[in-house]
Design a protein around this nucleic acid. Structure first.
Lengths: 240, 240
DNA sequence: TATACTCTGTGAAATATTTCTCAAACTATG
DNA sequence: CATAGTTTGAGAAATATTTCACAGAGTATA
């Protein structure tokens, strides 16, 4: 998991310059007098706001107040305004936010103006589902290559894309230069795959293996552990 | 998302009685002099500890100190001890924790001593992957019925289980009494499906649809938004 | 253009969570 | 059974995050 995140802060209007995703240490305070920390939870909520304003746009809404966005997302209105304030000023007092404009700002803040190429490792059930997951494509994430270690799968196609052997990863990404890797392999091979992705130049990893993986500082990791999610639900079911 | 969680606190040794998963309000402080709040992040880490001690057990390790668990999980040792302390005392000073014993305690705390029946809604790509996801089965979550709204899918089988029509959900669960629902349907139908699950008596929902869903207080919800995860990674890739 | 509203942006206060620290508890050994 | 060495459990301190509350900025209307 990513613990700290710093954003250089320049002028009040629109300010998101250099970034550094760091891992576990506490002394990566690259603080200068103009550096402001953006809380991790804020980043996660930004994505929710983006989803929300897109839904509002689809509903034909052109202007939204923080209160309206709060109602839709279930996030406190002050929280929304505070979150945005880490990045600049995007609203109009007395009126609210222009939906189209806010969408563009949020997308840019999240780095979604550039499409991202994605390497998928693991052509099993989950890998197959992810390779054809429309949510990724819709939002500008393109799975450009699929890898597996199972010889019987090499050469077959998944969602129209050929499956390569995992050992070809570095060679193929020397060409592709994809920055994002998705790990959909069993627990036992997860760390090994992660190491190969990082060696191939991947900067961000989405890990579906139910195990904690280690990466060097500067590599962003998000873990999606389905088992863990179920266990958390199970906790809330105790004594029901 | 689940915001608050309270656990009745009884004696120092082993104490986790009544629970209440609450949603958005701030005034659900059912505080009595013996009530202690367990932070949400603690619950999430408990699952990681469980994973860790199981891996240690598999490695033949019989005793573990908080420091060793910290190294494996990447979580601070004091954090681990503090987390456990919400539930009781499980270690031996000077020695550490008995791996087998700790595993049993963690599993019980998380409510994993009872197997959980799961209803899966959505027989698309993701639903198919989830229905055969071994991680669930391994850990005592059994998908007992699968539902979809697509008539062409009704009667077909997914991972050996028949697919029923969504309208049969309530009727079938009157029999099955499953408490957990997994939502793997498109955004547009997510809220509707959630409402049907809740109406059918489901108490906990794992939502894969990329939209915020509303449930009445007392229903636990976990959202797994793959798109959002990607967007968070994208944020960390900005300016790289 | 004055007046009554509304809503943003943001310091300050309130909460929540993590980390530090260390007394007390236990082990292991001679 | 005393002593040296570990490690837990938990109060207190440090950090982080959320929420409050309101001045100031802009709208809308007459």
């Amino acid at each position: 998991m990513i613990e700290s995140e710093f954003v250089s802060y320049a002028a009040p209007k629109a300010a998101f310059l250099s970034t550094m995703a760091a891992s576990k240490s506490k002394n990566n305070q690259a603080e200068t007098e103009h550096t402001i920390k953006v809380p991790q939870p804020t980043i996660e909520r930004m994505s929710a706001y983006l989803q929300c304003v897109r839904a509002m746009f689809a509903d034909g809404i052109t202007t939204a107040s923080s209160t309206e966005i709060a109602e839709r997302t279930g996030i406190n209105a002050a929280q929304f305004r505070k979150d945005l304030s880490y990045f600049g000023e995007f609203g109009t007092p007395g009126l609210g936010y222009d939906v189209t404009e806010l969408e563009a700002h949020l997308a840019r803040i999240m780095g979604l103006d550039t499409p991202r190429d994605v390497l998928l490792v693991g052509a099993g059930n989950l890998g197959a589902a992810l390779s054809s997951y429309m949510g990724f494509t819709e939002r500008g994430f393109r799975v450009v290559a699929i890898f597996d270690s199972d010889i019987s799968k090499i050469g077959t196609k998944l969602a129209g894309r050929p499956v390569y052997h995992i050992n070809e990863l570095a060679g193929i990404n020397a060409e592709l230069q994809a920055q994002v890797g998705v790990v959909a392999v069993p627990r036992a091979s997860a760390q090994e795959v992660v190491d190969k992705l990082v060696a191939a130049g991947v900067q961000a990893i989405l890990n579906f293996a139910p195990t904690s993986i280690l990466v060097r500082p500067g590599i962003a990791v998000r873990n999606v552990d389905l088992t863990s999610e179920m266990e958390v639900l199970s906790y809330y079911l105790r004594s029901k």
